[in-house]
Design a protein around this nucleic acid. Structure first.
Lengths: 336, 336
DNA sequence: TTGTATGCGTTATCAT
DNA sequence: ATGATAACGCATACAA
């Protein structure tokens, strides 16, 4: 293990002072260094295999030029495309992105943020958690600015980037109605929560605009333990067994579509022939259903990019605790 | 923005030297500090909201106590459970784990490693790439030790942790044969590669042991563009259309099971009644097929934990470029 | 345009 | 058991 190559080594080799080397090696050409020496020194540094010490640099400048993103630890990585776009956006700004899954820790996102005291980072982006007071406090304790993404709280206490779930719900429903479907079921989970309410609201909005009455009986809230999806939803099975006719279905999120499609198939209904089905999320499972699922695609890319942009802004000035809404899009496949 | 609290601040407040404070605040009780002062100083540091400067510490000690894991950037996160277990393992060793997806960069894993020159890290774990010479070089340039996981190269040039694919293939096939199934199809991709060969080899091993001849015509290599899985595999459709009878099927990996199950269903075959199906990986899609897929579960947890352990060992002494094999397990569901 | 010198906050060495 | 101090490698203010 040889000693590391430092600025001093390069300066000796080049016969100049360390300051000159530092300036010559700066990312953007320093105004106080001639192009000639800049080139010469960079060449020498390269030959010597010089690598700047991040520790020394950070100690000196007080910033790491890195952002941390806290992701939920489900095996299912809906958040992956968000991280990817955040990654690219960070890179464009000359920042690095560190990804921190929330483990089994009982203290969740807040605990994960607290653990960042041992991580060289300048800011935090929290994905998919209700931005509780705890998250805010944990970040404040570390003097790190926070931005949340897909924060489901009604009134954000942090700067946050969200999806317009109401618009999404409406979009999905409009798509069904525009095909002449009239008897639409809403297949949701028993969860309560803002984002659910908004998707349902969008479902109602679309009906209102079309002048069609919502049949309340067709709004299902099904038991669906997250960790072990059931083969079918008994609520839907019962509805179909009762002879209630439907010709369209909006699944609250893609993963409900698998069981729901099974129910339809077992009831002898074809998709999209008898029943058109639209999901929500456009995650991987949407490609795997039979038939592949028409769904509302979350604006993953925009979410990540905007979050990074905000987090970087927060480096210099405090950000308002506002919610920024992004409208999703329809991804058409074969189910509707 | 107030100035940060340093050791000096704490030392002044406590009326002791900075060295004493440093010792008192060390993770494990320092032998050269009385429990009394240790307690007193820790309390004061806490009151003042002292946070150690990672930069200063790293500059002084020369280590960040962090490992980087390079993950493939497929939306599908098969690697997620590996990362999770690596995360926990790292934490137990007092290390942090940084996750770096390989973006759209054309230079792949090696390029991502090169980008680590701006990341405070002590070692690299590479997931799911053939550990090419480029990876090795990129890491060497940064003076970072590398461990690879699931490296499919025939002869590893790095310390690597792998799954025993031959044992897995055999395990899957044994499960089918033990149910009295005799005419087994192997449904694989057109990819070549070590891991594929080994799964097929396991398939053959099991047949040999059972004294059953492998019908070469039943070994299918299907076109399957990764980005857009087909509804069915035409190779399988043709086989079934030709009236070839099968009663069991081993899918090279879980994601092939969706299309394969569709083919069977369309041919009027039931699963597992007429045909028992076993997959490989136990990733999320295995729970979503109809019926849920019996499959070979990759030892995700062991892979991550062992990789971290090796990477930490590599901090102190160079590791041999050996392959460590882990045997997978059978995860029984409804398809076989 | 370039060089010298200082300080960032910590840990380790050496005295006491 | 504790204190003073050097050193880690860099960026910058200031001097030349």
């Amino acid at each position: 293990m040889t000693r590391r190559v430092t600025l001093m080594d390069v300066s000796k080799q080049a016969g100049v002072g360390v300051a000159t080397v530092s300036r010559a090696l700066a990312a953007e050409p320093h105004r106080d260094v001639s192009p000639a020496t800049r080139e010469r020194i960079r060449r020498i540094a390269d030959d010597l295999g010089y690598r700047p010490s991040l520790a020394a640099r950070a100690l000196r400048t007080g910033e790491y030029r890195a952002l941390s993103v806290i992701v939920p630890d489900f095996e299912w990585g809906w958040w992956e495309p968000v991280v990817r776009s955040a990654y690219n956006a960070a890179e464009e700004h000359g920042y690095h992105l560190l990804v921190h899954p929330v483990g089994e820790r009982r203290d969740g996102a807040a605990g994960t943020i607290s653990a960042l005291s041992n991580v060289p980072t300048d800011g935090v982006i929290v994905l998919g958690f209700s931005a509780s007071r705890e998250v805010q406090n944990a970040a404040a304790a570390l003097r790190l600015p926070v931005v949340s993404v897909d924060d489901t709280a009604a009134n954000p206490i942090l700067p946050t980037v969200s999806v317009d779930n109401r618009a999404g719900g409406r979009m999905a429903t409009d798509h069904l109605l525009s095909q002449g479907r009239q008897r639409l079921a809403y297949v949701g989970n028993t969860w309560a929560g803002n984002f659910v309410d908004q998707r349902i609201q969008g479902f109602r909005d679309a009906h209102d605009s079309a002048g069609i009455e919502v049949n309340e009986r067709l709004i299902l809230r099904c038991e669906n333990p997250w960790d072990d999806p059931p083969l079918t939803f008994k609520e839907l099975d019962e509805l179909l067994a009762d002879g209630v006719r439907i010709d369209g279905m909006f699944c609250e999120y893609d993963r409900m579509a698998g069981p729901a499609l099974r129910s339809l198939r077992r009831a002898g209904l074809t998709v999209p022939g008898d029943v058109a089905v639209v999901g929500y999320d456009d995650e991987e499972s949407a490609k795997l259903t039979d038939p592949p699922l028409t769904t509302i695609r979350q604006p993953y890319e925009e979410l990540g990019a905007l979050a990074v942009s905000l987090a970087i802004q927060a480096q210099t000035r405090p950000l308002a605790a506002e919610r920024r809404l992004i409208v999703p899009t329809l991804r058409k496949r074969q189910s509707a």
